[in-house]
């Protein structure tokens, strides 16, 4: 059994979930529920793939993917914050729109193969057995995903801006009364969410499976949304959830390959089941969940004049 290989596969399987969930966490903490994660990821994926194919630059591809996710989030922001559309319905529409638009844009890119995203190479350090490959030979989006989790956790708990963001998510009326720009804060949070979903999509089409295939997210956006809720809106737990899900997904494939006598249908269910059970268990304190959950999530804010 090659543990290193398994760990490497787990990292690739978890990274897109982690990126998207971190973005959605900030969006939800500001009191906005964006169910368009799947759509933004797909738009990010095709834009990144198309840009990389045309320009031959993975960096440009990732930037374009992130920008595409952000622009779709911009549309969402205008709809729910300015035109006061229902967030759940708009989010669902965004997903459907993203699936369709990415398929349309992607028709010319089906059947093209790309080189996977380049990996970090620190010479001797990366060549070290076991640790080297896991710690020092990933592509930059993997490092970025970890950095972002730490950054978001620090931002939410230790900075003044983070406090404002949470206040806006907690009670937009109070925040507004205190003079905080509720709509601006939420807009930025939505854009950040879109940016991260764009990155997650780029990771899918450039590193995870370097190809474009319609609807290639295959539900990962929804898992990211669920992770935020089951991780009770805490960055660390969301990250734990993402890795738990990735780990069990990969391990169940290995267990099947070893030929153990467990029903494959049960194994396929296991990542969902285990992630929910673990996250529910570690955060079963109802009072704390209520503390963490943004109270005005999904509610429309109209500034009183």
């Amino acid at each position: 059994m090659d543990v290193v290989a398994i760990v490497l596969t787990i990292i690739t399987a978890s990274t897109p979930l982690l990126l998207a969930a971190t973005g959605e966490l900030i969006t939800e903490k500001s009191g906005v529920l964006n169910l368009g994660v799947e759509g933004m990821m797909l738009i990010g994926a095709i834009t990144a793939f198309a840009t990389t194919t045309v320009t031959d630059s993975a960096v440009l591809g990732v930037l374009a993917g992130a920008a595409a996710g952000t622009s779709l989030a911009f549309v969402f922001g205008v709809l729910v914050l300015i035109l006061l559309a229902n967030q759940v319905a708009t989010g669902l529409a965004l997903t459907i729109f993203g699936i369709g638009l990415s398929a349309l844009v992607g028709t010319g890119f089906v059947g093209i193969a790309l080189e996977p995203l380049p990996k970090l190479d620190l010479g001797l350090l990366s060549a070290m057995p076991v640790i080297g490959q896991i710690l020092f030979a990933q592509d930059f989006l993997v490092y970025l995903s970890f950095f972002m989790v730490v950054l978001v956790a620090y931002f939410l708990s230790k900075t003044r801006l983070g406090l404002i963001l949470r206040a806006v998510g907690e009670s937009h009326d109070s925040a507004h009364a205190l003079g905080y720009p509720v709509l601006l804060v939420r807009f930025l949070a939505i854009l950040f969410g879109g940016f991260m979903c764009g990155l997650a999509g780029s990771y899918l089409s450039l590193a995870y499976t370097p190809l474009w295939a319609e609807n290639m997210t295959a539900g990962r956006g929804w898992i990211a949304v669920a992770l935020v809720v089951f991780g009770t809106w805490r960055a660390g737990r969301v990250a734990l959830g993402a890795y738990l899900f990735g780990t069990i997904t990969i391990l169940q494939l290995h267990v099947q390959g070893w030929g153990l006598e467990i029903a494959s249908q049960f194994m396929s269910m296991l990542p969902y089941l285990a992630t929910i059970v673990v996250l529910v268990l570690i955060s079963r304190d109802g009072a704390k969940i209520r503390l963490n959950a943004p109270q005005s999530i999904g509610k429309v804010f109209t500034p009183s004049r």
């Binding site: 059994m1 090659d2 290989a5 398994i6 596969t9 690739t12 399987a13 897109p16 899918l204 995870y208 499976t209 190809l211 295939a213 609807n215 290639m216 295959a218 539900g219 990962r220 997904t249 990969i250 494939l253 290995h254 099947q256 390959g257 070893w258 030929g259 494959s264 249908q265 194994m267 396929s268």
Partner: peptide, 25 residues
């Protein structure tokens, strides 16, 4: 032959992961 069931007709990520697991084995 080692078989890995992904319980899906279409999930590029998971299909690829299954292939990786099989190669690792």
């Amino acid at each position: 032959i080692s078989v890995v069931w992904v319980n899906s007709w279409y999930d590029p990520g998971k299909e690829g992961d299954a292939a990786k697991a099989l190669i690792d084995q």
